[in-house]
Design a protein around this nucleic acid. Sequence first.
DNA 1: CGGATGTTTGAGACCTATCAACACCAGTGG
DNA 2: CCACTGGTGTTGATAGGTCTCAAACATCCG
Lengths: 246, 246
Amino acid sequence: MTGDTPHNLMIRKLGRIFHLCEEERQALQDLPMQVAVVKADHDIVSIGDRPHQCCMVLQGFTCVYKLSYQGRRQIMALHVPGDIPDLQSLHLKVMDVSIASITPCTVGFIQHEDMRRLCDRYPRLTAAFWRETLVDASIFREWLLSVGQRDAYARMAHLLCELLIRLKAVGLVEEGNTFDLPITQSEMADAVGISAVHVSRTFQALRANGLVETEKMKITIPDWDKLKQAGEFDPLYLHLDEGIAA
Amino acid sequence: MTGDTPHNLMIRKLGRIFHLCEEERQALQDLPMQVAVVKADHDIVSIGDRPHQCCMVLQGFTCVYKLSYQGRRQIMALHVPGDIPDLQSLHLKVMDVSIASITPCTVGFIQHEDMRRLCDRYPRLTAAFWRETLVDASIFREWLLSVGQRDAYARMAHLLCELLIRLKAVGLVEEGNTFDLPITQSEMADAVGISAVHVSRTFQALRANGLVETEKMKITIPDWDKLKQAGEFDPLYLHLDEGIAA
DNA sequence: CGGATGTTTGAGACCTATCAACACCAGTGG
DNA sequence: CCACTGGTGTTGATAGGTCTCAAACATCCG
């Protein structure tokens, strides 16, 4: 589960895309990473910053968000262990979003300098990291479709589908499609673009229809097919289980 | 303006990020590109495809879109000459969106193979292309903020701001902040996530407030500051005028 | 000139926001 | 141990932005 070392988390993730040779594996293993603990609800990087490092989520959940001038928050992505939310900063000097912890987190910082050295030496790793940012972009697009064209019910169902799949991929889902979702309804509201009150009502509808069960911060999906259908969920956009183009 | 060769369009665009050396410039110049003409409203690449080439827009406008199961369309990006809408396909085998012309277009196809050869040889070009995809992602995020948190009026103002800036960057804006926007209100509706009739009404409001003037398919922005304010527009997310991290 | 396409208008319905009150829980500190 | 507190979730009532449908209107083009 999360009893994994930071580097193994990364190696396992990149290794799903194509077979890493021993040298690449070792290079990743040697990548200097500074581990830090972050309290819940704290910015890890802020919009306007010019970071000289990337951060990988090791434990906990983080989100990418932005505020409108009226102070309304849109959460644009949720990140789970193994993700690198600000990989973009490697090539975009100034942050155009903020990244915050939503639970207490441990994160690993990797200096851009080290990252660049790694990429220079191993072009296949460059491609793999590039690909990671492309998958992130694909998820943004799917969220855009959700927020633009689906109603609240479908949006929430869709988000839950996505989280189940992504958490499964990092071994954070228990038997019976149950997983921890330490997220406030108000945060979920900011993610799907509806009000917190309406999240509450929509959750009730989902529960009433037997698509979701909730207990504290634990979610279970009793009927995966029904939830998928309600959320119009097609995992294509997550680009799992396909090799990188040779 | 667009009396430019395909390769110069590309060189000028990448050259804005960092100084291309003569060798890089020549390599780009030598990149094989197959030019094609596309009728309006035709898919150039479709969701589910496994392309072996990228396409660069040379003339006209294209869009990236996706359909919900109810057949509602969300346009996720508009692309103008110089853009490479499906650069992602270089590393993501299967298309998760469709790309269509919205006007008659000429596009240039570049084989992945050639692209990869170029990137292998010139790591700085790899970085530059990677960066292009990151800017695309940043635009997705800003659109997500718009669709999720701003009302119809602000969304449309924001989109017009973005188009003005991006078209200016490729020399497609005339004196007096006037530019061609050969886009149907129904297409604009799909881009900002509201209905076509509401686009009509919102356009009227924008005109009434003196933020926009329209004539045929030509848009002019009489008061840039007011439009920017109405759209909460901050060009940071476009990542213009900043060098790539060295 | 006819027909197709795009835009505008009006009216009513619908989804979702907002506001306020309340219940619940977990800490906290006296 | 118990009031107190702040954060979270729920509920009800009302308001408001946007949708839908339909029809009229404008524009373009062969």
